[in-house]
Each structure stands twice: as structure tokens, then as C-alpha cells.
């Protein structure tokens, strides 16, 4: 190795915003965002299935776009904002109340949009990114929006319905 290349096999400290909170992790350059979320931050909602960009189970939102966290290096997320499934449910302001599910989560329950549930966090994050760019999608646009998320159980028809229902809930919620 030429000596004037900066050495950096070693771990480094990076800070990123995950679900609106600052988190600092100490990672090797080869650590993927997916592993950093799951192993370092204990956020196991994003799933590791193929680890090669072929299934969508690891989908999170970076900035305002859905991405695969298995093909993203954690060190390249320094200073970035990441949203995962864990950040969707919000605290209810009423004292003693439980978390309030996000409209997309509610719609998934209402429409029975999963069987094993393994693909669900990825589907929901893909739909969240879709609805942020397009609050009133057609069925075809929904299909395109989740076309990067495989469902081995074949729950697709209900996933599409849930996405359309979530769009409706979010629009009426203003």
C-alpha cells in the first residue's frame, strides 16, 4: 500500500440522525448501514435477507429516498438522516397512552397486508417514501413503489390495498 494513502481499516466514530435522534456508532468502513442499525443500535426492524440488493427487506429511508441499507456503508451515512420502521409510531400526547401507530401501519393491520411479516418493515418504508413524493398514487404507482420489495408469502394484493388505504388516511388526516 502506498504510504500516503490515509490508513483506515480501523474503526471510526460517525454520527447520524436515526428516527430524529442523533446516534454515534464506532464502526469499520466495511460495516453496512444495515449491520450498524441492527448490531450497533439494536434496531432490528430492517431485516437482513439477501444482503445483495435482491429482496428489499432492509429498506430504510435516507434523506427522503428509500434505499437498501445492505448496500450502503455506514461510514457514508455520517451526518445523514435515516428513518427506520422503529421511528414510525409516535408517542400519544395523552399521559399513560401507548404509542400511536402510523397511518401506514394502521392500514397494514386493517387490510391484513402480511402473512409472516418478514418483508413488512421494508414494504412500509418503501410506501412511506412513495407517499411522501406522491400522496395520491394510482394502483400502478403503488405497484411501482413497492416493486423493490419481494414478499415470499405473496401478500401483494393486500399490500397494494394497504398502501392506497394509507394514502387515504394520510390525506384525510390533512
Amino acid at each position: 500500500m502506498p504510504s500516503n494513502l490515509p490508513a483506515g481499516h480501523s474503526r471510526r466514530t460517525i454520527t447520524m440522525t436515526v428516527n430524529d435522534e442523533q446516534h454515534t456508532v464506532y464502526v469499520e468502513p466495511r460495516r453496512t448501514l444495515l449491520d450498524a442499525l441492527r448490531e450497533d443500535l439494536g434496531l432490528t426492524g430492517a431485516k437482513k435477507v439477501c444482503d445483495l440488493g435482491q429482496c428489499g427487506a432492509c429498506t430504510v429511508i435516507k434523506g427522503n429516498r428509500a434505499i437498501y441499507s445492505c448496500l450502503t456503508l455506514a461510514v457514508e451515512c455520517a451526518g445523514q438522516s435515516i428513518q427506520t420502521i422503529e421511528g414510525l409510531a409516535q408517542a400519544d400526547p395523552a399521559p399513560g397512552s401507548q404509542l400511536r401507530l402510523h397511518a401506514i401501519q394502521q392500514a397494514f393491520i386493517e387490510c391484513d397486508a402480511y402473512q409472516c411479516g418478514y418483508c413488512t418493515p421494508g414494504q412500509i418504508m418503501a410506501i412511506k417514501a412513495l407517499l411522501e413524493h406522491n400522496p395520491n398514487p394510482t394502483l400502478d404507482e403503488v405497484k411501482m413503489g413497492v416493486s423493490g420489495n419481494l414478499c415470499r408469502c405473496g401478500a401483494y394484493p393486500n399490500i397494494f390495498r394497504a398502501a392506497l388505504r394509507a394514502a387515504e388516511l394520510l390525506r384525510t388526516a390533512g
Binding site: M1, P2, N4, L5, A7, G8, P29, E76
Partner: peptide
């Protein structure tokens, strides 16, 4: 798991080409 590697942020295209040139000299 990927093999370990260094990771460098380039701030210009010329810098990136220089790093490629030095590292891939052989």
C-alpha cells in the same frame, strides 16, 4: 462479510484520479 478496507472521501475528481494512480501503480 466483506474483507476489511480503508475508506477515503475524495474532495475533487483530480484527487480521486491521483489516489487511483498511486494505489494502482503496480
Amino acid at each position: 462479510m466483506m474483507k476489511p478496507f480503508d475508506h477515503v472521501d475524495a474532495n475533487s475528481a483530480a484527487r480521486a484520479a491521483a489516489l487511483l494512480g498511486e494505489g494502482n501503480q503496480a
